[in-house]
Simulated assay, not measured.
Amino acid sequence: MKKEVDNMKPVVLMTDSRATISSEVEIVHLPLIGIRPLPVVRALAHHHYDWLLFTSKNAVELFFLHYPDVTFSNIASIGKKTSLALAVRNIKIDYEPPDYHQESFIECAADRFDRCTVLIPCSAKARPMLTDFLKRRAEVTRINLYEPVASVKNAKKMNELVVSGSIDVVVLMSPSAVNAYFTQYDVVHLPVLAVGPVTSQALSRFGQPHITANQSTKESILQKIIEMRDNHVI
Rank of each mutant, 00 (worst) to 15 (best):
V163A: 14
Y146N: 07
S166C: 14
H101I: 05
I91D: 10
L130C: 04
N159Y: 13
L130V: 00
P128A: 05
R115H: 14
P128S: 11
N144Y: 12
V140Y: 11
H101G: 06
T131V: 06
E139D: 15
A150Q: 10
V171I: 12
S123Y: 02
D99Y: 14
V170P: 03
L119V: 03
L172F: 15
I167D: 00
T117S: 15
M129T: 13
P121M: 02
T141G: 07
K125G: 03
I167P: 00
T131S: 12
R137W: 00
Y95P: 00
L130H: 04
A109F: 02
P128V: 00
T117I: 00
A126M: 10
R127D: 09
L119P: 01
N159C: 09
E139N: 15
A109Y: 01
S104D: 06
A138Y: 03
M129N: 08
C108V: 11
M129C: 09
R137F: 01
V171K: 01
M129F: 09
S164A: 15
R127H: 13
I120G: 03
S123Q: 04
R136K: 15
Y100P: 05
D168Y: 10
I91C: 10
I167R: 00
C122N: 09
T131Q: 14
S174G: 13
V171G: 10
S166Y: 01
R142N: 13
K92M: 12
K125E: 13
D132S: 06
L130I: 01
S164E: 07
E107K: 13
H101S: 04
R112N: 05
L172R: 03
T131Y: 12
E103P: 04
R142L: 06
S123H: 05
T141V: 13
I91S: 13
L145I: 09
N144F: 10
K157R: 15
S166R: 08
K156F: 14
A138K: 06
F105E: 03
K135D: 03
L145C: 11
T141N: 14
I167Y: 00
Y146Q: 08
E96Q: 15
T131I: 04
L134K: 01
L119Q: 04
A126V: 07
V163Y: 08
F113M: 05
M173V: 12
A109Q: 08
K153I: 01
L119C: 05
D111M: 05
L134T: 01
D99L: 15
F105S: 05
R115Q: 14
S151P: 09
E139R: 12
Y100H: 15
Y146K: 05
E96F: 11
I167L: 12
S166T: 13
I91H: 09
V171H: 02
V152K: 15
Q102C: 10
I93P: 07
